[in-house]
Amino acid sequence: MTALIMSELRQRMRGKRWWILLGIWFAVLLGLIVLIRQALVSTSPDHDLEVGVVMFASLALLVLALACLVVPALTATSINGERDRGTLAILQATALRPWEIVAAKFIAALVTTAAFLAATIPIALWAIAEGGVSLGKAAAVYLTLFGVSAVLLAGAMGASAIVRRPALSAVLAYGFVFFLTIGTLILYGITMTTVDYDFDGSPPDYGVRWLVLAPNPFVVLADAAPASPDDQDDDPLAGMRYSIRQARDPQSYQIQSFDPQTGEPIFEEEPEPPPPVWPYGLAIEAGFAAFAFYVATQRLGVPAKKLPRGERIA
């Protein structure tokens, strides 16, 4: 299995496409971050804004957004592509078991994804150097990015196992990404139409509707990022985290009154920190990934019982 992983990686590294993609990836991210920094510095010349915090949060969100584009492109044809080239059946005829083939392809793709993430580390270090972001927070965010990418990857690989034609499996892989990112948002919006609002000031009961939003990769990312104690208002990640946790537990953010002098909200009692959402989100995502893995393994099982019409083993 190790040999197959190494060979997958070796082939990827030798292809020009891979390096071009990596170059574009880095250039686009760097360009965007430079622009964002310019915007931040020029709008707040006296530096009351935590430039580093915003830069880092923007980077994390942009990396995830681009990963949503790149990851399916790297993996959506990994299995049916081999079938097309007539190399898959030969793999199936070796002593490797079906799950080992799937796992090898998955791990190779995961390493590739890690390389893409690693390429952004210099930009992250720049943001950290601007201040406001601890190394621990940065590490946690990268870990989350990696985990979420792994889920997207597994989905794309499942698509490449189910669908015979590479073009269609790419569509399916992007469909999965679309479902997680925008689909959950739409679904959440729909469920929100059924909320009953009382006008006596008590917070509405959203029930478990937050679970619909939980597997959204951006929600997971923002929610899993550790809060920096100072200046949360500027951090886009903190803003998202606040929203999702409020959706889960409106009570905990219930403001009783405002201080007449400062305008600051006064909580009747110090609010309990609301429980995090990301473990649920990640668990749901892991469920999708496990399902994709299972399906892919089933599809590679030999001897094949039934073949879809018009399909050949070799």
Partner: peptide, 17 residues
């Protein structure tokens, strides 16, 4: 699989190796 050496009529190779 361990006993059998199979050579299909049509097969691909990994071009970059």
């Amino acid at each position: 699989h361990r006993i059998v050496g199979w050579m299909p009529d049509f097969f691909g190779v990994y071009d970059d190796l």
